[in-house]
Amino acid sequence: MSQTRTIMIECLRYDPEQDQAPHYRTYEVPFTDEMSVLEGLQYIKDHLDGSLTFRWSCRMAICGSCGCMVNHQPILSCQSFLRDYYPARIRVEPLEHFPIVKDLVIDQSDFLGKLESVTPYLVPAQPLTPEDGPNLQTPRQIEDYLGYAQCINCLLCYAACPQYGLNNAFTGPAALALLARYNADSRDAGQKTRMEVVNAEEGVWGCTLVGLCSEVCPKHVDPARAINRNKINSTQDYFLRFLAPFGRGS
């Protein structure tokens, strides 16, 4: 059993029924070496203040529910340990750039709309039935999209992206990475439908390559790469339109 120490956790609090603006409350939390930030928050809820509200589910960086800001860095609270911050106090806030519903809970509906807009599913060239058998891929074809397919929709990348914060019309990192994921899949023929999202001002061109989205991604999806590679496709699409005015995009 490791030794118990005490860390100060400063938490953003916002109750829409009481507060005009958020404020901070500090809690003294006893912790052991193996305790995550999420377990620190759970200690507060169980022992110090039952009204503290936050999302969590799997506790093992799979579900993507427990994203929050710790000292202005977007993290999964289940994956970050209190021992790494001690003896400094930590400041826990909801994910940046999203409307706060209550305490650490944010409203994700803007992202969910954007996710829907990128057609995040396979669009086969011809309708297939189970009788057509499995849709086989080579390991190389899987490699083309597997990295992008690791996204768990935790929204850390949106909290890291100042362009999304300044103008939330921007489609944003995770949605554009998932767009790249389906475009790169050999079983998919939906590139043309997605090109409209890519080419839009708020599509890939809304990205100025700050690059923090890729650094904070807990699943190493690398949205910055996905977006900037699609800038090449968007440029090609733009110029090919002049070469074949009656073909593409007409």
Partner: peptide, 15 residues
């Protein structure tokens, strides 16, 4: 629900 959107002023100071 009534939500609160934090302002982006001095955003470059954050990271």
């Amino acid at each position: 629900p009534k939500t609160y959107v934090r302002p982006m002023n001095r955003w470059w100071m954050r990271h």
